[in-house]
Design a protein around this nucleic acid. Structure first.
Lengths: 143, 143
DNA sequence: TTGCGTGCAAAGGTTTTGCATGGCA
DNA sequence: TGCCATGCAAAACCTTTGCACGCAA
């Protein structure tokens, strides 16, 4: 995961925002707006380009949305170990959970051995409701 | 799953094409092109609108693609039982596999009980390579 | 000073909307 | 005949590209 050649103010601001708000996923537009409101104008093009880079380097994860809608980006903690475990994402609050659990890890071995299918963890996520949101009955407008 | 009010030639053609080619996923544009080449011109708007409907009614499944790219639609066989199991999709050939497997179902129970997370099967698909494509080393240009 | 990064403006692609016309029931 | 469906054209989005200028090293 090669670093970009230069360290710039914009890149620092973008990455900082994502990492300080890792529990949520943001669209490009939201990032541009949020940064603008907090006093720093960063060009939309720059955000697009740097997010591309951050996805490739493993620092961000991209979640496509329904047709025609902008996808969202979310900071990945523990990026190093991510290829080894399954992930859960709450469709209501956006929480992203790394399941470093032996029992669950077996699932990929099982699928590989019994169903002849090689799961790519980086592209596979369980979506559903986390305990907090399930309790609240909080589906956040999602069916 | 209300039916549309009218039965039209266009709708019949579209649904037929998807169901006769259920092993593959298509973009709106591909459908328009394919139908045009086989002699029936169906308006792009119509395909958009009817696919929307077919997704809502459970006959098609929508797969968003990477940023800015058109998503794809694929016919859903056994739509009824789908909420009960996890699915695999081969990123190379597009094959869609229904995993009606106890072991996998147990994983979801485990996640519910031990990780306090309620997995929504209809939104959770595992991506990877099926045995055929893995053997061929055929990634179809996907990294 | 060199070369990468930034951001505007314009182009390119995708999806939705408005509206007149067509066709099912 | 009464509605809903269709499809064109235009509008509305979203993303990428080209290029001149700025800034890190």
């Amino acid at each position: 995961m090669t670093e970009p050649s230069y360290k710039t103010k914009q890149r620092e601001i973008i990455l900082n925002y994502f990492s300080n708000n890792h529990e949520k996923a943001y669209t490009i537009d939201e990032i541009v707006e949020i940064l603008k409101e907090s006093g720093t104008v960063v060009g939309r093009t720059t955000v697009y380009r740097y997010c591309d880079y951050l996805v490739k380097s493993g620092n961000l994860r991209f979640f496509p949305q329904s047709r025609g809608k902008s996808g969202t980006y979310q900071y990945v903690e523990h990026a190093d170990e991510c290829s080894e475990h399954i992930h859960l994402k709450c469709v209501s609050c956006g929480k992203f959970i790394h399941l470093g659990c032996d029992f669950v890890s077996n699932i990929c071995e099982h699928i590989s051995e019994h169903h002849n299918f090689k799961v790519d963890n980086s592209k596979s996520t369980f979506f559903g409701l986390c305990s907090d949101c399930a309790e609240k009955g909080d589906n956040n407008g999602i069916d």
